[in-house]
Design a protein around this nucleic acid. Sequence first.
DNA 1: TATGTGTTAAACAATG
DNA 2: GCATTGTTTAACACAT
Length: 486
Amino acid sequence: MGPTMPPSKKAQSPSSGASASQGMSPPYRQGDAATAASEAEAADLSLSLSASFSKAEDEELTSLSWLHESTDLLNSFSHSGLRSVSPLQDPDGQHPRSPSSSSPSPDDPLLGDAHSAYDLAAGANRKPPYSFSCLIFMAIEDAPNKRLPVKDIYGWILEHFPYFASAPTGWKNSVRHNLSLNKCFKKVDKDRSQSIGKGSLWSIDPEYRHNLIQALKKTPYHPYSPGLATPSTSPPTLPQTFHHSPPLWSGTPLFRKNGGVLLQVPRGVIQNGARVRSQALFPVIRPLPVSPVGSRTSAIRSSLGDYLSRGQDSPSRYSPPPCSEDLQDDHTYSTAKSPSRLCSSQVAAPSSPLDDDDIIAVEIQSDVKPEPREIPLDSHITTAATTTYISQQPLRGQRRSSGAGAGTLAGSSLPWTKNRARGISDTLPLKKRRAAAVEKPPESDDEEMKEAAGSLLHLAGVRACLNNITNRTAKGQKEQKEALRN
DNA sequence: TATGTGTTAAACAATG
DNA sequence: GCATTGTTTAACACAT
């Protein structure tokens, strides 16, 4: 039976990320210590961003590398006094009642405040604007072994999104539904030595990992600055993972395990970006021109450009970035097809008054990975529901499309549809296809997994470093003030 | 309007 | 037998 969900309920649906962003008011606020920022620093960061963009234009950055670059810088925004809207923020911008379970340390002079703001925005009664696939992805990605039983996935979601604690249990069904249908997730044969009880371990299919990252990337988030004249209701398109980290990633076991630092961040790359917390930041940054450049560059431009040029009235709706000339690359999960290249990117900000110890460096390297996959993303990555429907349920297709929709897909009018993406085995029942897939030896998954994992860890690490630096900067400034007083 | 994506609910089988 | 897990179907909302 298909439930008729009340519109109000649907409006809060995680799937309605875009819609959720529409009514988003700018609930962020600046930290109390934000006054420490100087416009010169803002300019520095602006230059860094510009350098990043230029670099991206010059070379087609890999999806992850451009993510690294852009998100590094954006992290420095969000962690430098510019508050971003919680992913748990209700579309209406209201603050939920209770903070998330992963609260920031209260002794954090700067970020304690920031996190407070964040946690105020995070709520137990607000459905996070993440699709279940993203939630599952994050949960699994957060697991030490990158695999979790369903139960632990539940737990992770509950831990990080208290909303679900009081939500109807249907979400668990949705989680299972996603696990079953979404090709991005695959069961791992249980190790006999492991006794996890009933069920299997679930992991991310490296083959589709990029797609999930893309999905995350396209999840709207809402970094605003109160200093911006007219905060748009449209969120920039950015990897959610990278901005909302406070409750999500900083609270993860991995994160805590390392005292808030997951990565060794080399010096010399992003230097003082983290210290910038000036509202004047944005006016300094030039909006990025829109030109047919590579998808990554376009994505950066689209997201960051929107983000940075937010001072003006912008379209009220979030729209996915016009990523590339290749429309196939524009799809939600599409990354698999994009060629990856060796990329060691560095974004160096101008001189910093900080000591060397205060200089963060982030160096990202992604290995060259030939792109053997000719599966155009999106379609096969679409939610498994769609693919399954198409591949297995022609009747369903008829129903869903009431015409050309799934029928067209099933008929492979579109090059990236199942017929192309799927092999012969796709004619088999899903269960058997999955079994076959499990048997299939991984192809260069290791590197990909490392890259993806590194990406996520990197984000958390960068955040931690930025946090540290922010703290230290704040402390230093405080000490300086006191010294001046004396 | 057509189509794609994602959510929710439900039924049911398999499993511990 | 029961609870949980996994799969599948169905219907729907929303975005493009």
